[in-house]
C-alpha cells in the first residue's frame, strides 16, 4: 500500500529524512516511531503530498507522489498532530464542510460524531472544546470519507484514558475493515498493544522494522534488581543477565548475603526504543 524508496528531504543544510526505505502492507496497522526531530512528521507530509521530496520515490495506494496527488487525495485521511478546525464553527459545521467537499451524505456527519462520542457537543463552537475533544473531532473529520489509508500523527495525545481506549479500538476496527493505518506516537504501550509492525527511525534514517514482539525478543536485556544491606547501608544494584560476569556477581551476592531482595525488571518496547535510539536506559 505504501512503498518508500530512498526518500530524502532536506531543509537547507539540514537533512530531515536521509535515504529512508519502507514498505507498508494493505490493511496493516503500521507504527512509525522515532525521537523528536527524527523525521516522522516530515515523512508523513511527503506521504500526504504536503511536501515535495528531494530524492527517492514514494508510491501510496498505487499513486506516485507528488505527481499523482490529485488521484490519491480522496483515498487517504491525515490526522495531524495539531488540530486545525474553524474555531467559530460548531463541531457539526466543521464536519459538514469537509463532508460536502468529499461528497459525503449528511448522515455520515452524525454517524462520525456518534462514533467519536461528540454528539452532545456537536452544536457547540469548537473554540469551547477541550484539546481532547478537538483531537477526536479531527479524527472524525479524517474518517468521514471512508479513506483506504489513514495517517495518524499522535492520535491519543491529550486524550483521557477512556478516549484513548476508544481511539485504540477505532484503530483496530479500521484495520479490521481493511484500512491501512500509518501511526506515529510516543506512547510505547500503545505501540505494543495495537501495531502490527513498527519502524523506528532516528536522524532521518531507518534503524529497524519488525513486529513489536520481534523487537522485544531481539533487543531485550533481562535485568535483575537486587536490594540488600551492607555495613548498615542500604544498597541497590542492577544486574544484566546477558553478561556472565554480572550473573556470577549476582550468584555470589545471593550466596553471601542473608537478606537480598531480588526483582526481575520487565523489558518492554519502550526499552527497545530507548536502546535503539541511543537513550540511556534507566
Amino acid at each position: 500500500m505504501i512503498e518508500i524508496d530512498e526518500l530524502a528531504v532536506r531543509f537547507g543544510n539540514f537533512t530531515a529524512v536521509d535515504g529512508l526505505s519502507l514498505s507498508v502492507r494493505s490493511g496493516e496497522l503500521f507504527g512509525f516511531l522515532g525521537p523528536n526531530g527524527a523525521g516522522k512528521t516530515t515523512t508523513i507530509r511527503v506521504l500526504t503530498g504536503a511536501l515535495r521530496p528531494h530524492g527517492g520515490t514514494v508510491c501510496v495506494a498505487g499513486c506516485m507522489l507528488p505527481r499523482e496527488l490529485g488521484k490519491l487525495k480522496p483515498l487517504f485521511g491525515y490526522v495531524s498532530d495539531a488540530d486545525n478546525h474553524y474555531e467559530d464553527f460548531t463541531g457539526r459545521q466543521n464536519l459538514a464542510l469537509y463532508a460536502r467537499l468529499y461528497g459525503c451524505a449528511p448522515a455520515r456527519v452524525a454517524q462520525m460524531l456518534d462514533t467519536l462520542e461528540l454528539a452532545e457537543a456537536a452544536d457547540l463552537k469548537v473554540g469551547t472544546y477541550s484539546r481532547g475533544m478537538r483531537k477526536k473531532l479531527l479524527i472524525a473529520r479524517e474518517l468521514l470519507h471512508r479513506p483506504r489509508i489513514v495517517f495518524f500523527d499522535e492520535p491519543t495525545a491529550n486524550l483521557d484514558a477512556h478516549s484513548v481506549a476508544l481511539v485504540r479500538r477505532l484503530l483496530r476496527e479500521l484495520t479490521g475493515q481493511g484500512v491501512t493505518v500509518f501511526l506515529t506516537t510516543h506512547d510505547m504501550e500503545e505501540v505494543e498493544q495495537v501495531c502490527d509492525r513498527v519502524a523506528i527511525i532516528a536522524r532521518g534514517r531507518l534503524l529497524d522494522c519488525d513486529t513489536p514482539a520481534a523487537f522485544i525478543a531481539r533487543h531485550a536485556r533481562p535485568q535483575v534488581e537486587a536490594r540488600y544491606d551492607l555495613d548498615g547501608r542500604s544498597l541497590c544494584e542492577l544486574f544484566d543477565m546477558d553478561q556472565p560476569a554480572a550473573r556470577d556477581r549476582l550468584a555470589g551476592l545471593v550466596r553471601d548475603q542473608r537478606d537480598v531482595r531480588l526483582r526481575s525488571l520487565a523489558f518492554g518496547f519502550a526499552d527497545v526504543f530507548r536502546k535503539l535510539t541511543g537513550q540511556a536506559w534507566q
Binding site: P74, L75, Y86, D88, F89, Q93, L97, R100, L101, Y102, G103, C104, A105, H145, R146, P147, R148
Partner: peptide
C-alpha cells in the same frame, strides 16, 4: 469512499464557508 463532487460544487461549498466566516466576524 465517495464520489468527489465537481469543481464547481467544491468552489460553491468553499464560497459558502467564506461567507459563514465573515458572518461570524462582526
Amino acid at each position: 469512499m465517495n464520489a468527489a463532487p465537481s469543481r464547481l460544487r467544491r468552489i460553491r461549498v468553499l464560497v459558502g464557508k467564506e461567507a459563514a466566516r465573515l458572518l461570524r466576524n462582526p
